[in-house]
């Protein structure tokens, strides 16, 4: 009996250490993602003429999405958040890649649809709307794809109440919700009559989403660290 208790305690201890390292890995990943956003803000003005965040917003949207997706893919390859037990063949991997691409595209279309339902113009400024949808997908869907893979059931599990099983799931929840809420809040300044350049569709929303994403990235490790006791308990 006593031995069992000791073993359980040791396990708990081990789990704690595991979590510590996981959180550290997670933080590194988040910092890199944050740097990707920063990169998209700082580097293009040096390389491109006449680049400005507000003036050539569409270019920035493309660059930012590409950066974020690339970093996500790189992180997936280096950190391997949810290591699968099975060894998969090359064909299987290609298949998965194809599926992921399809998922990403569908999510872009879905976001586009939702944004139009929210009142974005249907035909005029369609590119703005679509690139904003791409940005949102790269903030949310690309991370999901990289962490969970193209597995719809896993997604539903993660995004339901008490469905997260690891720190990665939690960070996914937090960043996704933060980016979407950021985009949601970003829509509020649009009707104000201040006539500022950033009130033009979709600048305030994309900035809101980016801001939310970065906040989520920074917040997630701390939040998980503070709540690690409760979380380890739950994941067991």
């Amino acid at each position: 009996m006593a031995a069992a208790v000791v073993i359980a305690q040791a396990l708990q201890c081990y789990k704690g250490i595991m979590d510590e390292t996981e959180i550290r890995r997670l933080s590194v990943g988040h910092v890199l993602c944050g740097l990707a956003v920063l990169f998209s803000l700082c580097v293009p003005p040096l390389l491109l003429d006449e680049f400005s965040l507000l003036g050539t917003h569409l270019t920035w949207l493309c660059i930012c999405s590409v950066c974020v997706v690339t970093v996500n893919v790189l992180l997936r390859l280096t950190l391997k958040p949810n290591p699968s037990t099975k060894r998969s063949s090359f064909a299987h991997k290609v298949n998965k890649l194809k599926q992921s691409g399809l998922y990403f595209f569908v999510s872009c279309l879905l976001f586009h649809g939702i944004i139009v339902l929210y009142g974005a113009p249907l035909i005029e400024s369609i590119w703005e709307t679509f690139l904003f949808a791409v940005l949102l997908s790269s903030f949310t869907t690309s991370r999901c794809l990289c962490i969970l893979g193209p597995n719809f059931h896993a997604w539903i599990r993660v995004f339901s109440k008490d469905g997260a099983m690891s720190v990665w799931d939690h960070s996914l929840q937090i960043t996704t919700i933060c980016s979407i809420v950021g985009a949601w809040l970003g829509a509020f300044p649009i009707p104000l009559d201040w006539d500022r350049p950033w009130q033009v569709w979709p600048i305030s929303c994309s900035l809101g989403a980016t801001f939310g994403y970065v906040v989520g990235l920074l917040l997630a490790p701390f939040w998980i660290y503070w709540n690690r006791k409760r979380l380890t308990y739950k994941s067991r």
Binding site: L117, Y118, G119, W184, A187, I190, P191, L192, D193
Partner: peptide
Amino acid sequence: GASSFIEEEHQTWYFLINT
């Protein structure tokens, strides 16, 4: 509290029911 939001109150409601 903001005059623009009163003028554009419909946007608030459309946004809310969408959400």
